[in-house]
């Protein structure tokens, strides 16, 4: 199942990053403007985006396609519009990179999906409670693992993987709850 720009917009709406008009503009004009803004405003933004893509490739189900494009567009806007989130993610990335260097002598974003998953597990993020100000495991869970999981399973395409095309957090209208399951 292929993730699209529409899914990224939906995920951003669900995450409260953009509203109706913002979503329409973003869908129309693309993410380049936010991407540029993000690169200019925050040191290390590109590295955070790369790490979020690496996390998604490790934790998304195998049948999802276009993970890179989806997460890059989602993350560029999120980081541009949420400076507090970007600052917290930058701190958590330092710990994630440190673990990657210990294990594979490379920064996290340079790892392949299997290696990324190994590093994520070694931080303890798989079973950690998410906490933006907690331990390394809790911060990695919050800023990386849960961030990309929320983007996926809060979007229509991610919801459809499970059987719900209007997942909680997505403004999918008031038709879907009435539809028969065979539609």
């Amino acid at each position: 199942m292929k993730l699209t720009r529409r899914d990224a917009v939906a995920a951003l709406v669900g995450a409260g990053v953009i509203g109706g008009a913002g979503a329409a503009a973003l869908a129309r004009d693309g993410f380049q403007a936010d991407s540029n803004a993000a690169n200019g405003e925050g040191e290390g933004t590109e590295a955070i985006v790369e790490a979020l893509v690496g996390t998604a490739r490790a934790v998304y189900p195998s049948e999802v396609e276009n993970v890179g494009g989806f997460v890059e567009t989602y993350a560029a806007t999120k980081l541009a519009r949420r400076p507090d989130f970007r600052a917290g993610a930058a701190d958590a990335l330092s710990d994630l990179d440190a673990e990657a260097r210990i294990t594979f002598d490379a920064r996290f974003a340079a790892l392949d999906p299997v290696e990324s998953e190994t590093v994520l597990r070694r931080t303890g993020a798989e079973t950690a409670e998410p906490d933006s100000e907690g331990t390394t495991a809790e911060q990695v869970r919050y800023y990386f693992v849960n961030e990309v999981l929320y983007a996926l399973y809060g979007s229509p395409t991610g919801g459809e993987l499970v059987g719900i095309e209007n997942p909680q957090g997505h403004p999918g209208g008031t038709d879907s709850y009435r539809r028969r399951p065979d539609r």
Partner: peptide, 14 residues
């Protein structure tokens, strides 16, 4: 809710 369940799960991927 699938999204809430995903965010508290102790597993990921497939």
């Amino acid at each position: 809710s699938p999204v809430e369940m995903a965010l508290t799960a102790d597993e990921w991927g497939d």
